[in-house]
C-alpha cells in the first residue's frame, strides 16, 4: 500500500524531467535524424528524401574538414594553456598563508564574462590603432593582423577562453592541493627529495584526480566553442577557427539548409562522442600506468 503511494509521488516529482526529455530530447533527436536524410531548406513547403547524399556532401565539404581539424588544434593549443595557467594560479594562491578565499573569488571573476563582452574587449585591444599594435609597430616594426592570420586567430580565441576558465579550474586545483597532507612533504624533505622531485613524485600524483576533472572540463569546452569565434572571426580566416558549432550555425541559419545542417550535426556529435571517449580512456590509462589514481 505504502509503496504504491510512493510510486505515484515519485513519478509525479520526476515528471518535469520526463516531459522535458520527450519534448526537448527525444523528439528533436528523432527529427534530427529524419531531417538529415532530406533536402529541406527551412522555408520550402515540400522536401524530398535523398538518402545519404547530405552525409556524402558533408564529408566532402571544406568547412566540415576544417571543423574536424580545428577542434583538435584547439585541443592542442587551448587545453595545455588553460591547464598551465590554472596550475600557476592554484600554486600561487595555495602558497598564501591568508586570504586564499578572497583571491580565489577575484580569479573567478573572468568566468562571469559573456563571450560577447570579452570579444568586444579583444577586438578593441587588437584593433589596428590600439595602443598594443601601435607600440608593436613603432617599437619593433611588427604589423600583426591578429585575427586575420590563421594561427594567431586560433591562439587569440584560445587565450580568451583560457582567460575565462582559469579561475574556475584554479578553484578545483586549489581544493585538490589543500587535500594533500603536509606530512608527506615533510617526510620527503627528510628523505632528501628536492623541490622538483617533490612536485613530480608527490604533488602531481596526489593532484591527479583534480587535474583529471579539469582536463575533462576543458576538453568539453573545446568541443563547444562558438561565441568568440562567431563574434570575432566568423570561422575564418580561411576556416582556421571554424568550429563544429560555427559550421552548423552557418549551414542551418545562414544558408537555411536544415537537412544538410542536421547531417553535419550528427557527424559532429559522433566525432565529439568518440573523441571524448578516447581522450578519457587515454587519461585513465596514463593515470593507471603511473599508479596515480
Amino acid at each position: 500500500m505504502r509503496h504504491k503511494g510512493q510510486g505515484r509521488l515519485g513519478w509525479l516529482f520526476a515528471s518535469p524531467y520526463l516531459l522535458y526529455a520527450v519534448i526537448f530530447f527525444a523528439i528533436p533527436l528523432v527529427w534530427s535524424i529524419f531531417l538529415s536524410f532530406t533536402n529541406w531548406n527551412l522555408i520550402a513547403p515540400t522536401f524530398n528524401f535523398e538518402g545519404f547524399s547530405n552525409y556524402i556532401k558533408a564529408l566532402k565539404n571544406a568547412g566540415v574538414h576544417a571543423a574536424f581539424f580545428v577542434t583538435f588544434k584547439f585541443l592542442i593549443v587551448f587545453v595545455p594553456m588553460v591547464v598551465v595557467s590554472s596550475m600557476i594560479v592554484a600554486f600561487v594562491v595555495h602558497a598564501l598563508p591568508k586570504f586564499k578565499g578572497l583571491f580565489l573569488v577575484g580569479f573567478f571573476l573572468p568566468y562571469l564574462a559573456s563571450g560577447v563582452v570579452s570579444s568586444l574587449i579583444v577586438k578593441g585591444i587588437l584593433s589596428y590603432n590600439s595602443p598594443v599594435n601601435i607600440f608593436l609597430r613603432h617599437r619593433f616594426g611588427l604589423d600583426i593582423d591578429w585575427l586575420g592570420t590563421p594561427f594567431s586567430a586560433l591562439v587569440v580565441v584560445s587565450v580568451m577562453i583560457a582567460w575565462k576558465f582559469t579561475g574556475y579550474y584554479a578553484l578545483i586545483l586549489t581544493s585538490g592541493l589543500e587535500s594533500i597532507n603536509q606530512d608527506v612533504y615533510e617526510a620527503a624533505k627528510i628523505d632528501g627529495a628536492n623541490a622538483w622531485q617533490r612536485f613530480w613524485k608527490i604533488t602531481l600524483p596526489l593532484l591527479y584526480p583534480a587535474l583529471y576533472t579539469v582536463l575533462i572540463l576543458a576538453v568539453g569546452v573545446t568541443f563547444g566553442i562558438f561565441t568568440e569565434v562567431y563574434q570575432l572571426t566568423g570561422g575564418g580566416p580561411n576556416n582556421a577557427t571554424n568550429t563544429w558549432q560555427m559550421e552548423i550555425f552557418k549551414q542551418a541559419f545562414t544558408n537555411l539548409q536544415a537537412g544538410y545542417a542536421s547531417a553535419i550535426a550528427i557527424i559532429a556529435s559522433v566525432v565529439t562522442f568518440i573523441s571524448i571517449y578516447i581522450i578519457r580512456r587515454l587519461m585513465e590509462w596514463w593515470g593507471k600506468r603511473n599508479g596515480w589514481d
Binding site: 528533436p28 533527436l29 534530427s32 552548423i248 542536421s262 559532429a268 565529439t272 562522442f273
Partner: peptide, 11 residues
Amino acid sequence: FFPALILLVPT
C-alpha cells in the same frame, strides 16, 4: 553524455 549540438536545428 549526448552532445547537445545535435538538437539545435530540430529544437
